[in-house]
């Protein structure tokens, strides 16, 4: 039997077991759900079994120990009883005690486990709120709790092991509000939004040439063409400390060009020939983690994006 066949057979075994079992048809949230009933109606009887399993789980190191990750309010302590024979009454109060900020007396027989009810951190690093773009395609970046999932509506962002996330979205013309939702493994949710504006560059129709007398043959050549905005990256990575990169390109003379990323920014002005160049230092950029560097022509709003990775040590 191949591994594939064996795996399929084992999967069928699980499916058969599920089919055979009478699973709960009670939808959570209706307050007759068994887990709630367990906690608030039958807690007393439940403790008998909970205590037994607690004993087994800790190898009889602590009688009556209870470990739980049931969602609880921060500061809520769930404890067992010293003697399983001494059962609390069937109300939640004796079993669930809220002790805000005051630690209970240490006891070798009690284990307290706090559920994770803290929403994951969620920060949008780029773009900045209120920014305007002439490109319809925009990359959003940020940070969250490692292991958390970040969604923009139905779309999942790529999240690396360190919690840095990124997603590329297409903007609608005008104002766009992008809402991101981070969900950690415990189901806690955090939400953050950013509003950006997409204003496409409207191409001007070519102006009609003025009706003038044809220039004499000795005149200078016709008006120069408008200089196109271009941007180029020299390195893309750097192992020197502090790490840096250089960018250059063309733009209309006098245009201010801003180059910015998560770890540094610089600007330049296009000269009379329309050429510009700038060196940007990315002090503090994390080793080996690529991030986006945006080059923006502040005159037209046009942007170009690149990636940079620092391999600087120290």
């Amino acid at each position: 039997m191949t591994l594939e066949q064996r795996a399929r057979a084992a999967a069928d075994g699980i499916h058969a077991a599920i089919s055979e079992a009478e699973l709960s048809s009670q939808v959570p949230g209706t307050f007759t759900h068994r887990s709630l009933a367990m906690n608030f109606v039958s807690f007393g009887t439940a403790f008998v079994a909970v205590a037994i399993v607690g004993l087994l789980a800790v190898g009889f190191r602590g009688a009556g120990t209870v470990e739980t990750t049931e969602p609880t309010v921060p500061g809520t302590i769930v404890t067992g009883v010293e003697d399983p024979a001494v059962l609390p009454p069937r109300e939640p109060a004796p079993a669930i005690t809220t002790v805000p900020e005051v630690a209970p007396p240490a006891s070798p027989t009690t284990t307290m486990v706090f559920a994770d009810v803290t929403p994951p951190a969620l920060q949008i690093l780029q773009p900045l709120d209120g920014a305007t773009f002439t490109d319809r395609v925009l990359r959003f970046e940020g940070t969250t709790e490692p292991g958390a999932m970040v969604m923009a509506g139905r779309y999942a962002a790529e999240v690396d092991a360190g919690g840095r996330w990124a997603i590329v979205l297409i903007l609608s013309e005008g104002s766009n509000r992008a809402t991101f939702i981070a969900t950690d493994g415990a189901g806690n949710v955090a939400e953050s939004s950013v509003t950006v504006t997409y204003e496409p560059v409207v191409e001007q129709p070519p102006a009609e040439p003025p009706k003038t007398e044809p220039p004499p043959k000795d005149d200078p050549p016709p008006p120069e063409q408008e200089i196109e905005f271009t941007a180029h990256q020299v390195y893309g990575s750097c192992s020197e400390s502090p790490p840096f990169d250089e960018f250059y390109g063309t733009a209309a003379p006098g245009s201010r060009i801003v180059v910015f990323g998560a770890y540094g920014e610089a600007d330049a002005v296009a000269d009379a020939q329309g050429k510009w160049s700038v060196r940007v230092v990315f002090a503090g950029a994390p080793y080996g983690e690529a991030f986006v560097v945006t080059v923006k022509n502040t005159k037209t709003g046009a942007t170009r994006m690149f990636e940079f990775v620092s391999y600087a040590v120290g």
């Binding site: 990359r139 923009a152 509506g153 979205l169 297409i170 990256q233 690149f306 990636e307």
Partner: peptide, 14 residues
Amino acid sequence: MQPIPGFDEVQSIE
């Protein structure tokens, strides 16, 4: 001098 990757994964806020 490479443009950023991922532009083939574009999705729409709309």
